[in-house]
Design a protein around this nucleic acid. Sequence first.
DNA 1: TTGTAGGCGTTATCAC
DNA 2: GTGATAACGCCTACAA
Lengths: 342, 342
Amino acid sequence: MDSDGGDAKLVDVARLAGCSPATVSRVLNGNPTVGRSVRDRVRQAAAELGYVPNGSARALRSTRTRLVGAIIPTLDHAIYATMVDGLQGRLAEKDVSLIINTSVYDLDLELDQARLLAERGAESIVLVGTRHKPQTLALLEHKRIAYVFTYTCAPTATGAAIGFDNEKAGRTAARFLIDLGHRRLAMIAGITQDNDRAEGRLAGFRDEVARSGLDPAAVPVIEAAYAFGNGRSGMRTLMTAAEPPTAVFCGSDILAAGAIKYCQEERIAVPGDVSILGFDNLEIAELTVPELSTLEVPARDMGRHAADYILASPLQRRHLRQRELPIRLIVRGSTGPAPKRR
Amino acid sequence: MDSDGGDAKLVDVARLAGCSPATVSRVLNGNPTVGRSVRDRVRQAAAELGYVPNGSARALRSTRTRLVGAIIPTLDHAIYATMVDGLQGRLAEKDVSLIINTSVYDLDLELDQARLLAERGAESIVLVGTRHKPQTLALLEHKRIAYVFTYTCAPTATGAAIGFDNEKAGRTAARFLIDLGHRRLAMIAGITQDNDRAEGRLAGFRDEVARSGLDPAAVPVIEAAYAFGNGRSGMRTLMTAAEPPTAVFCGSDILAAGAIKYCQEERIAVPGDVSILGFDNLEIAELTVPELSTLEVPARDMGRHAADYILASPLQRRHLRQRELPIRLIVRGSTGPAPKRR
DNA sequence: TTGTAGGCGTTATCAC
DNA sequence: GTGATAACGCCTACAA
């Protein structure tokens, strides 16, 4: 708190407390073998000098950085932002800092970022999905950095996975719509290239369609980046076709909201003429008119569980390596029985 | 790339390349005084060993960490997530890493986080708003860590500020509604305690009301955390009062969306019976029915400009220290002329 | 153009 | 219980 120099170091604290640097270090690290009176003097001295430990030096010497990295596609999508919020919150409780990087769905960029995180000494890294450059994972293995996949539940030999089964989710969506009597289905999916989550949902959806005796090839699929406007234009494409669908599954609530918007503008009744099913259960799902039926993704929980895995001891980790969180179907107003054939 | 040991160090690279550690260091740091052939050999050797520099050692020796911190209230609100996305994106271009912390609007927690960031060696810190514990700023000054306020444009003696004028925004909102003929105004504001942004908007709103000859004390104000449900319940409180307002300014689009939802449920016409004005211009502003009139906050730009400030040289910084970004009024369907008095 | 040597601030391993 | 002392991996004068 003084206005002296810039930064006091361990030695300065030692000098002021009248003891050796080693002892100061011990006090600061909670080593219980230090006498009460010395400990108090050290604490006092540290406070007086406004001493702040030098993390770099500490990390260099102890090889523990208490630093974790996360590489996510973007923070501009609530589903990732919320996951990170949960992750960071849990890590912060243990004084572990989180460096975050956005890859914009670019796997090459992701590799660069992983390298930088390795350089910074990240002890664990949180990744999204299973699809990554082999070199990225090789790097992490090589540097013995623990990694966790989220939004998926298929771990690799050395990595962990905390999330849900995207294929199963896709199947659940199809099943739900088919059970409502729909036969002309369609999907507005995310971009599936380099994105195993979007791909999984689509695959599961098609799979269940086929299992029901329908022709998956006859299911129109539009791929588009997760943006409101894309949901709207995607829906236009679908609904202006010769045989418009009676039910549309969207790979994200954002797309679904755009789809609903289009219907509203065109006075297409939802769910009277067409049912719309979303994915994520974002806050916006309650904002649309009608409210959006959707599949709930446990974003925050994924972040928290990922943090738990990271904070766990190597032994505990074995049990936490794979975790499939439930996805819930939430039925609101945007889905209903298939309209009677005209 | 080899399966050897764990991590090669500078010396190992030097040995393999047949030169001294100093030369390797020079190559890695882009020092041009190294001969082409040696440089190539070093690069080759580094790649072969899968060498990754140790950031801690580097930071310790050079006192440059290339680390920046950000402390924001939460990532669960798009307005902050987007700002951080912009900030991170710009910093990453220069290989600067961002550690993020969420304070949940708690200034004590913020101080702890600032301390941890100082320990980690953050060279700059991005904060939200002007209201902070004196100790927080004292710490940053003491450790000579540059800091930037966002969402405000009033810098301190040594800090920078990049954002907009919340009071002016509040005045703009009031002016707009009054000009539409409204006389019975109300506001659903964010929690103003420890939040200068929410407070500023409210103060500006009241100020303009008074300036127009209306009684600011007669303007009902409800404070609530930024959540959809709070907008709804706040609106209920306002509209079930003896003299319901004909125009409501909400401190965030989230609150406004909830307010619109309430009206829709109660068949209160928007803007026929009551106009609703939001704040932020989130994506959801286009989702409500009717679409939301709102004040646009340049979230992403704030992040980017903050990054520019941080990346600038001390000289350039002088010119970037204060930056007031424009807030735009976006008129959509949720606002209209005041209804005729019955 | 390249090599040598010392130290950045801390912690771990010894002694006492 | 506490104090010397030697690294941790890298950068940077300075020397050659």
